[in-house]
Amino acid sequence: MLFIRHFERFSERAYRQGKAGGYLHVYIGMEALAVGWLTQIRQGYDYVITAYRDHAHALLLGSDPVACMAEIMGRRGGLSRGKGGSMHLYDIPRGFFGGWGIVGGHTPLGAGLAFASKYRGEDRVTLNFLGDGAANAGVFFESLNMAALYEVPCIFIIENNEFAMGTRLEYHAADTELHKRGYPFGMKHERLDGMDLLQVRQDAKRIIDWVRENQKPYLVEVMTYRFVGHGAADNDQTLYRTKDEVESARQRDPIALLMDYLTSNNLMTREKIEAIDAETEAEAERVYEEADDSPHPDPSEVYDDVYSDMTPEVGH
């Protein structure tokens, strides 16, 4: 969690310093959610897909942090050699299928991944992450129906950070209990906490085990909160929330909650935690510097990988 937090701060720095362009969405405040779920799967075997707030997912699945940061900076050393960017991280050998920018658009892909594993008689589970904004998309409902109809082992995980960009949950969803989206399709569904890491891990394990065993889909709504703007370009959060609200949410900062647990149970001293924090921050800085050393792509690479077997016509 600490590494993700520091990595994301350096992602924001990359944006501020003009080393990352476009859109960039960081995971600060939501770390326990991805950590809790992605540490409970069989990494490299199970499939994971998410939307554009995707840095944490890649890091947790074991992607090289330098390749992640280099991709965010659009460099040749990036996971997609600078073709994807922050929103489109992929590490397919590790079971990470992105990294998608159309709200709700990737949700049927996740169901299709799960269909493929069922088709082949494997016992993989697919974690299909989406935001609360995507929970209103038509194609998401189509995906839920098909996943339930074909009984595929897919867990739809709504990361409910209470805002669809700058629009509060109450203003974008007629029913704010998003887990109920599973009900009309006969799908098991529940709302869970996403801030207390130990609780998240327990819930994740229980549900992943159930889906692997029963080979049926599941829908969870995990309650979380982002402490930062929607994206790095979102520079006026007062348009949709107050400072007091953010401060109050920070009372349940997942990292602080875990530190309190560790210290109050005498599992780790405050000094030790601070030492780890400093070490982790230094590691994130090293990643940042190393990624920044990666060269920009050569202009001639622009035609690579449009097709697997041919080059498109060249020239303007």
């Binding site: 892909l109 169901a111 189509e142 098909m146």
Partner: peptide, 30 residues
């Protein structure tokens, strides 16, 4: 895969985005 659902000739609901997205996901893993 489940009673009534054929594996290799899959009758779908009438939802073109869902069908194509589902097929893309399956294609991405071969």
């Amino acid at each position: 895969i489940v009673p009534g659902i054929a594996r290799r000739v899959v009758d779908t609901p009438i939802v073109e985005p869902g069908i194509v997205g589902f097929a893309i996901g399956a294609a991405m893993v071969g």
